Amino acid sequence: MGKKSRTRTRDQVQAATAPGEVGPRQPCPCGSGRRYKACHGAAGGAPAVFVSRPFEGMPSECDVVAMRELVPSATAPLTLADPAYAERTVQLCTLLPMAAPAMVRESGEVWLGLQVQHAFGDPARDLGAVLLRALEAAEAGEAGAVGLTDPPGDGPRLQDLVTGDELAVTVHRGFDFWVADIEDQDSVAAALEQANAAAAPTDKLTSVPSAYWTAMGAKEHLRWVMPEPEGPLLDALARLHAAGRDVLVPDSRLVGMFRAHGLLVPVWDLEPGTGAEALEEPAEAFAAALADALTSDAPLTPEERSARSGLANRQVTLRQ
């Protein structure tokens, strides 16, 4: 009786949630990691505005999402659109020391951190505001951490401040880049060792965009951020899954996917010892097959519909 009651309640909640709305127990779309009812759905809580796909229009949007949500340690140089800052070096980083939103280095370089939760609704606007503050501090010759304590209000978003078509992402095995320009590294050795120990080994595939191999303990995974709209992408993945064409290497398995900043991220479990290099050619072949499947407008077969339902309902826990 209790199980039936719980099922009925769940169905009633789902029916009461219109398409495009967020249920109270679902993750808040702002990316804070909290449930919607405890974040933007809370009375008097976080601001009501949020952007479901905040990094759309950003060079290498999928890699930016990966750097924010998947990759422990990576950097990518940014080219600023404002000619006044043409000579200023700006580095986009996954994580900065003490999780600082931004830092102005003694050299005058500006580092912008992606893995920081402002929870003001639009991470791209937050990053834009932080970048502008850091640039102002750099121009004034001030070094140190820069961040936000209040909602930034209206203003340019990160993609409004940068230019270019693609980011050159470098994945690091640890955070030694934090101290590369520091002479007295002994003073930060303990903190650096702790940070390095917590960073799961990660490699970016070179044959396809925005696909990252990682090893977490004894387990290995491939997590691939894809830019296509969710509906057509799920259809295409279902066609390949039903046909058995989503096995990248022996004993690999497409186990599900998660959503990150408006994009779908399929996840494969891999046999321990696979490594990133063994995935290069299979991933390239899969990308070609997926592109072909995306062009099909044929109705899904019963087997494909079943595969689609299974993939859509197989949510993977996001861990770094």
Rank of each mutant, 00 (worst) to 15 (best):
V65N: 14
M67I: 07
V49Y: 06
V51Q: 12
C62Q: 15
S52W: 00
G41N: 11
A38S: 13
F55D: 00
S60E: 03
V51Y: 04
A46I: 02
P59Q: 03
H40I: 06
P47C: 07
E56K: 01
A42G: 06
F55S: 00
G45W: 03
A43V: 15
M58K: 00
H40L: 11
S60A: 11
V51F: 03
S73M: 08
D63F: 02
E69K: 14
A66V: 04
D63S: 14
T75H: 04
A38N: 13
G41I: 08
F50V: 07
P59F: 09
G41K: 09
P59A: 01
G44L: 13
L70G: 12
S73Y: 05
E56C: 01
G45H: 06
A74Y: 03
H40T: 10
S52V: 13
S52L: 08
R68A: 14
M58C: 10
G57Q: 02
A46K: 14
S52K: 05
A74H: 06
V65R: 09
P47W: 01
A74E: 07
G44F: 08
M67H: 10
E69V: 15
S60P: 12
T75F: 03
P59M: 03
M67P: 13
G44M: 11
E56Y: 00
A48F: 01
V64S: 10
S73V: 07
E69L: 07
P47T: 14
A46N: 06
A74P: 08
